[in-house]
């Protein structure tokens, strides 16, 4: 049984026919923690808004918990939880007022579903009389999660929940999601941070509205067929230009503190090293590395554009 089924879903905006979502098909299993990974503007939010019945699809269909997002939107609304990318609770209401308000709208109460949110709410409780607008970023995010959970949804949609949150809070947040998953809630989460992909059961890589790959994070990296190398030198910018100019290198991109690149089929590392030395670079380190999700993403993206 699948919690979310998306079938050739497309969304086209406005008169200029901007395609935000391009024939996307994927399935999310019940109880799965599913990640939608892609850069800004990839179409993640559009997909989330269609699944939460806030937006009508241009073509294709989608089902959440067995209900059609267009025809049965009312049934979906009472069984999904949605946390939008932007904090959108009432800033002038207190933490407790926000929670009771949303609980009441779903015909339930804070007491009834306290168990589900308890682990998160205990951290908020000291501030329960504080206005939501006066909370810190991490606290706001926890409150938003509580409000999305207060009616015991069967599917939880989290649109970029960790964007703009510090590293510690991000880790905490993913731990919380893990606990919620153990409660049997299906979670669909989107994020632009590739390093978070590892924490999902399965991920979908998305770029310009198109799916690049849907698989477990391990499978996605395993599917990476080429050998990947990283390079370091005293002058990183000149190194990048030198690598890109070299006949031994097929592709090269900056990756944090190092540059990642592939060799041409006949490329040799010794020749390349000599070439770089001749170019005046020093302290050159070249290493064979295992690719991460981001490398896979860049590779798939480049392949698509070719």
């Amino acid at each position: 049984m699948h919690a979310v089924i998306i079938d050739t879903l497309s969304k086209v905006y406005g008169k200029d026919k901007i395609v935000a979502v391009d024939r996307v098909s994927l399935e999310v299993k019940k109880g799965e923690l599913f990640g939608l990974i892609g850069p800004d503007g990839a179409g993640k939010t559009s997909i989330f808004r269609i699944l939460t019945t806030l937006l009508l699809p241009s073509s294709g269909s989608a089902r959440v918990d067995g209900y059609d997002v267009v025809k049965d939107y009312k049934s979906i609304r009472s069984r999904v939880g949605y946390m939008p990318g932007r904090f959108s609770l009432y800033q002038d209401l207190s933490v407790e007022e926000n929670l009771t308000f949303f609980a009441n709208l779903f015909n339930t109460s804070l007491k009834e579903n306290y168990k589900l949110i308890e682990a998160i709410y205990v951290q908020l409780e000291p501030f329960k009389n504080r206005k939501a607008g006066k909370l810190s970023g991490g606290m706001k995010q926890k409150l938003a999660l509580c409000c999305a959970l207060i009616h015991q949804p069967s599917v939880l949609f989290l649109d970029e929940p960790t964007t703009g949150v510090d590293a510690v809070s991000r880790k905490e947040f993913w731990d919380m999601l893990k606990r919620l998953k153990e409660e049997g809630i299906t979670i669909m989460v989107s994020t632009p941070y590739m390093d978070e992909a590892k924490r999902c059961d399965r991920i979908a890589l998305i770029q310009s509205g198109k799916l690049l790959s849907v698989d477990t994070p391990a499978q996605v990296t395993a599917a990476y067929s080429k050998k990947l190398f990283s390079a370091k030198a005293d002058n990183m910018i000149r190194l990048l230009y030198a690598l890109r100019a070299s006949a031994h290198v097929s592709s090269c991109y900056a990756f944090g503190e190092t540059h990642h690149f592939h060799f041409q089929e006949q490329g040799s590392s010794i020749d390349l090293l000599n070439e770089l030395k001749q170019a005046g670079l020093e302290q050159i380190e070249i290493e064979n590395i295992t690719p991460g999700i981001e490398d896979c993403f860049i590779d798939l993206m480049l392949e698509k554009t070719k």
């Binding site: 939460t52 019945t53 806030l54 009312k74 609304r77 009472s78 999904v80 949605y82 939008p84 932007r86 904090f87 959108s88 609770l89 009432y90 800033q91 949303f102 709208l105 779903f106 409000c147």
Partner: peptide
């Protein structure tokens, strides 16, 4: 403008 209407719209209200 604040976006709270989104949060209301996903409820069965």
């Amino acid at each position: 403008e604040v976006g709270t209407i989104e949060q209301i719209n996903v409820t069965p209200v």
